[in-house]
Nucleic acid binder design. Sequence first.
DNA 1: TTTAATAGTAACTACATTAGTTACGTATGA
DNA 2: TCATACGTAACTAATGTAGTTACTATTAAA
Lengths: 128, 128
Amino acid sequence: MAVHIMTLLAYLGEKATSEVLAETVNTNPVVIRRLLGELAHAGLVRTERGKSGGFSLARTAKTISLLDIYRAVMSDTELVPLHENPENHKCPVSCKVRGALSAHLDRAQGIYERELQKVMLADIEKNM
Amino acid sequence: MAVHIMTLLAYLGEKATSEVLAETVNTNPVVIRRLLGELAHAGLVRTERGKSGGFSLARTAKTISLLDIYRAVMSDTELVPLHENPENHKCPVSCKVRGALSAHLDRAQGIYERELQKVMLADIEKNM
DNA sequence: TTTAATAGTAACTACATTAGTTACGTATGA
DNA sequence: TCATACGTAACTAATGTAGTTACTATTAAA
């Protein structure tokens, strides 16, 4: 949804209100304001309050990557989370498996994120 | 948790009951049986019912990749899912953004999965 | 100065997902 | 025949998320 909204802001090229944005996603303006709050916090979106306020991109679509958006809105930092049950200290596997696994998952996620970093919002927008 | 259990089965090198497996993950045997049901369905685990039954690897740890395990237990096929709100047909972005985005996400996920495919259960197990 | 429009946010409801649990049926080796 | 173990249904509890309402704070424009 974040990419949808960001693409729309790029496409429009001007300020838009949460109400207008909500319509194109078929959701509620508050949902949009919450989402854009995270994007604004990450410096991707500019917010203007009050009459004739609204949201706009804080940077050009060429300089915003899918990774920027992903990081701004994904609360879970892990693509594939580890289970969180407590360790059984009698079991060596229980004690070590998380570390061994996360090393590989983190490396794979790094590669995934580098792919997202290569794709700019402008690449998405030009298909609209 | 699936990787934890699979590593344990590789480490033990013999049958184990859901009760024993549940202890090392600090969970309930039924949770293990449900999980191993999915792994058995994918052909990664062998199940034996009745007295002296239990679970064991259906293939060697060298031939089971993290991708095999991932695919067996991940119901969501998408690492990063698209939002599912209905399209707004008046808005060209709403109509096209999902296709444009998923092309890039699918490619990145393919690369992620190839990384998981390179890591074998034996690579995890040797660290125990 | 007043008004209207707009974002920020708290609080609540509804819904879906998941883990854990209990209970019981089914299968099978001893 | 029996004890043991998986398969699975049904239920509870916890969690997370979307949506909604309502209110406050802010700001441009009349």
